[in-house]
């Protein structure tokens, strides 16, 4: 941070670019974590649904931990744990790892709910038509269960996008960290926070609205 050597006062175009770059970093770390986390979470959800004893005994409690400890603590803990086991991770790398597992832990529940939303009779019907287990999964469970939990999945994704702001605690300069830096330098807290807030809102609001619309349409 260079607030001590700053001699800017007031918010200028460079600052705006600075925030823009930071916003891209927010998008990048979110997109990466959400996409890997969703795939991983889907896999976990399927394992949990299949309910093999090992999955229930090992996976479920581990995922539960990631839902019961504040994300910020997870980030600090992992960032400081990595070097202990000889991993050389920068704040971005640590952030991606934790956000991914965090996403996966949340998505696992959603995915399991989705599989369970498809009733037994329907799955029996699919199998009775001669579909294999995987065909049943691909052509029956995925489209029907996926629809049932799509809004919940969008909720998780938007939540992780917003929570990515916490990676700032490791020093990763995403949007909110950049805002904080600029606030100290320019003393324009209201303007800068409004810009940052508007960015998150512009991203989250339309998507959540769209998901709610879809949910309504599908419910009919």
């Amino acid at each position: 941070m260079n607030e001590t050597i700053s001699f800017f006062s007031g918010f200028n175009v460079n600052d705006f670019w600075f925030m823009g770059e930071a916003a891209l970093r927010t998008l990048w770390i979110s997109a990466l974590s959400i996409s890997i986390g969703a795939v991983l979470g889907g896999l976990f959800g399927w394992l949990l649904h299949e309910g093999k004893l090992t999955a229930t005994l090992t996976l479920a409690p581990v995922l539960d931990i990631f839902r019961s400890v504040p994300l910020i603590i997870q980030l600090v803990l992992f960032y400081n744990f990595a070097p202990i086991v000889g991993l050389d991770l920068d704040p971005f790398g640590s952030g991606v790892v934790i956000l991914t597992i965090y996403t996966a832990a949340l998505v696992a529940n959603v995915a399991r709910g989705g599989i369970e939303a498809v009733g037994k009779p329907m799955r029996r019907a699919a199998r009775s038509l001669g579909m294999s287990y995987w065909q049943d999964m691909r052509y029956v469970v995925l489209p029907i269960g996926g629809r049932a939990v799509f809004p919940a999945w969008v909720g998780v994704a938007l939540g992780v996008m917003k929570d990515s702001a916490l990676v700032s605690v490791l020093g990763y300069v995403e949007l909110l960290k950049a805002s904080q830096i600029l606030i100290t330098r320019t003393q324009e807290p209201f303007l800068i926070l409004s810009i940052a807030g508007a960015f998150y809102f512009a991203l989250s609001f339309p998507v959540s609205r769209y998901a709610a619309k879809l949910e309504q349409r599908w419910a009919q």
Binding site: D163, A165, L176, I183, F190, L193, Y200, F201, S204, F205
Partner: peptide, 22 residues
Amino acid sequence: ELARNTPALFQLFFFGFGLGAF
């Protein structure tokens, strides 16, 4: 909508620095 569509940390900052502007 603001509470649901912005990060909680943003909301805290707002009550912290944001109100400081006033």
